[in-house]
């Protein structure tokens, strides 16, 4: 075959009130077929009420080799968490 069938990432909202979550991917020629295939492949047992499909090539991902410099600095900023601050017990729940 001349071209490979494009790849799509599939996101499903399990029920209203929750956000769409990535569940997997599939191949389809266009967005109409991608939605139909996503329904068949990823929602056979009531897994969701809404589907998003996104062309995989439209996703920009962070570089895993930079994960340390990107995300580790947040670990030493403990003053961003409520438990960093001391409040006497008498004050009650805060």
């Amino acid at each position: 075959m001349a071209h490979e069938t494009p790849l799509w990432e599939v996101f499903i909202r399990p029920r209203n009130g929750l956000s769409h979550k990535h569940v997997g991917s599939l191949h389809a020629a266009d967005e109409v077929l991608a939605l139909q295939a996503a329904r068949d492949v990823y929602t056979r047992r009531g897994e969701g009420v809404s589907i998003w499909v996104v062309p995989s090539k439209a996703i920009t991902a962070s570089d895993p080799d930079r994960a340390a410099e990107d995300f580790e600095p947040t670990a030493d900023k403990i003053y961003r968490h409520p438990t960093f601050y001391e409040i006497p017990d008498e004050v009650g729940h805060m």
């Binding site: 075959m1 069938t5 266009d30």
Partner: peptide
């Protein structure tokens, strides 16, 4: 199934 895959891709290209 080859003709189905090819037709779906051709249709997608035409729509695009």
């Amino acid at each position: 199934g080859a003709w189905v895959r090819e037709a779906a891709l051709a249709h997608a290209e035409k729509r695009a």
